[in-house]
Amino acid sequence: MQYFMQLLISGLAIGAIYGLIAMGFAVIYKSTGLVNFAQGEMTMITAYIAWTISTTVSGNVFVVALGAILAAVVLGLIIERVVMRPMLGEPVFATVMVTIGLAVILRSSINFIWDAYPHGLDVGFGRSIVRIGPIGVRTGQIAVIVTLLALLAAIWAFFRYSKIGVAMRAVAADDRTALLMGISATRVHALAWAASSVIAGIGGVFFALSYDLSPAMFQLGLKAFPATILGGLDAVLGSGLGGLLIGITENLAGGYLGSGMKEVAGFAMIIVVLMVRPFGIFGERDIERV
């Protein structure tokens, strides 16, 4: 039982990070209909900026968190304004290719702006180990699980009750009708990119707290993407839960079936789930009337 619990807790912790990044994917898809293949790279850039703040401005956890959130907002807005908005109305394939190009540029920028060495994000929090009986867990891991759950609740409330949230849902459902209702689609898109950058960036910062920062960190996006497919590409909350499912499945498979199965298990689960529900566990069936 202790073995199982340790696997479960570790799975939840890494799954929460996948979940946050997966929610970033879903926010953009839900608002713009676009899959952002630079999500992992945006996550990494925010984490590196947080590290830079911690080493040059202040190591205070609140200063770093505020700085990282602001930086993520700016990053998301810049990408939307400079790179994505000119692509409005262009074929989806071309737009997706732009995000792939953006991913390569952001990935390479790490070596140009920072370096190839791994770095630890030290904000005086997250690295200490809490022992619950024989089970050890880092405070950063507990914090990321709590943060994901809090964000899931906040985002549910945002889409359900706030004007902006309802506007985002309207644009996602039918942008032309939303435009006729006086909703600015470009503003909603900009907001989606900023929100996606912040949510995924939080995941990146927590990853850096629990593990470390390195130019390989963008690969988190490759793990989070299956999570969002599993939860539903248009389901922000579902993507978060998809991340938890992937994390737990990976860890249990790695623990009981062997190291080699760890990477395979999540994808195997996606294949099975998509065969039954092609739009993901929480995704909406795309109905076309003819």
Binding site: Q6, F207, G255
Partner: peptide
């Protein structure tokens, strides 16, 4: 005896197996 995929970043289950 474990074998991990290049790019793997979380080794919690691998190290738990090592411990066991």
């Amino acid at each position: 005896s474990g074998n991990y995929k290049k790019g793997q970043q979380d080794f919690s289950s691998d190290m738990l197996q090592l411990k066991e």
